[in-house]
Design a protein around this nucleic acid. Structure first.
Lengths: 240, 240
DNA sequence: AATTATTTGTCCGTATGTATG
DNA sequence: CCATACATACGGACAAATAAT
């Protein structure tokens, strides 16, 4: 169960992200918010502080609490990420997220190709073998695919990149439960499904990493994600 | 002036990041912290809440506040970033940051090559022209260089990438004031200085963007940052 | 398996400080 | 200089979770 102030952060945060409040708008003053939402001023104050740390607003004495431009938002906060993803008006944000993946994942895999220990290599091999064996089984495939990407990621030994990609994945999972992303996935499947083609794409990455070929590993991972990006681009232009 | 609770967050946060408290450690209980630091329990509670949102600790009723593993930290928070950068024990973190740049900046420039408007292109041209004209003037060069990278970044029209790179730059600037990063910069200058070689590297990027050649733009930006990465790697291995 | 003790969580009202139109 | 609105800090009361008995 969420606290009252967390609920308020959620409520107001969504209104900002969805554009109900826009840059430069002044939120109702503490006392009014307290009245409107039937909570104490302490709760309101905590909520405003929460919104501040998200970079969504800035409280100024006398002039009130003002909504900040998008450039100030803490985009890597999981709540901000999911609110944006869940908002239909920000549909091309999914494309933007994919562009971040396109930057970071090939880099991570290239690092893994040079840094993976013998133990890492065993885990990578294990995950890929399970992918090979689950061509007919979407559920087993999904698990193996997930493991494969994750062991590769860990083997990059770059905490920052690992954390960033994991945050991104988490946001996608959370918002996919609620939004039309699920529909997109069903219709056009930009995500991996157990086809021979997908397997071969992964095999190329797998072999490059095992051969410590960072350039090839980068390239093949890049191709994999670029395919997702192209599908998303097609969907968005088609739906205009 | 920072509030008492912010000071506490800073103090405790640093102790966690530098390893004075490690994963699994239990912080003193609220009442004790209140006594130790001579503040009210409210202030302590706010500080613990702050540390929680940074992902550094998790408070549990009855069993106290426990320090979380590095994988849980909010790495993109500016405070966490600078604490880590300022800690000598994390010296290879600068390398990790550069690897993130290596992933994201070429991607951003490639996007700029396809998305830059006419107005963006004018600004890009202006910044590059100023770089050309300031070959003998380190200060003017620094400004033009900064502008050049920033207009390119904005022209990517990907808020997430823009924000991430800017956060990264900000952290570097803050921590460079305080640490040995300044010394590294002086000795080996992994950053741009006004040489003909640096200018030509930038010209390659400039022309690729102007020609809307996203592949070349990506490659040339990649080479620029890779050069920084190689220098850092050399420094770290030399100093072992 | 039920109870107790401990620790944090939540919310409250109040008091005083501080920036600013 | 005043009125306004937020900022900071305090302490108290009760709720909730859970380790220990």
């Amino acid at each position: 169960m969420k606290s009252r102030s967390e609920q308020l952060v959620d409520e107001l945060g969504r209104k900002i992200v969805t554009g109900e409040f826009v840059q430069g708008d002044i939120l109702p003053k503490v006392e009014d918010l307290s009245e409107i939402h039937q909570v104490s001023r302490t709760v309101v104050r905590e909520a405003l502080k929460g919104l501040s740390t998200l970079g969504l607003v800035k409280s100024n004495q006398r002039s009130g609490t003002v909504v900040l431009p998008r450039s100030e938002w803490r985009w890597w906060n999981i709540d901000v990420l999911t609110w944006v993803l869940e908002d239909e008006k920000n549909r091309d944000f999914l494309l933007h997220l994919t562009e971040v993946r396109l930057g970071l994942e090939p880099t991570a895999v290239a690092l893994a190709a040079t840094r993976a220990t013998d133990e890492d290599r065993m885990k990578i091999k294990d995950a890929f073998t399970r992918m090979e064996q689950s061509l007919g089984d979407p559920k087993a495939w999904a698990v193996a695919d997930y493991d494969f990407h994750n062991v590769l990621l860990s083997a990059s030994y770059n905490d920052l990149i690992i954390n960033t990609i994991k945050t991104l994945q988490k946001a996608l999972i959370i918002s996919r439960e609620k939004t039309l992303l699920a529909a997109i996935e069903d219709k056009d499947s930009p995500y991996d499904s157990p086809t021979t083609e997908a397997l071969e794409r992964h095999r190329a990455i797998y072999e490059a990493v095992m051969n410590r070929d960072e350039v090839l590993a980068h390239q093949k991972t890049s191709e994999l994600i670029l395919r997702v990006k192209r599908i998303l681009e097609k969907i968005y232009t088609r739906d205009l």
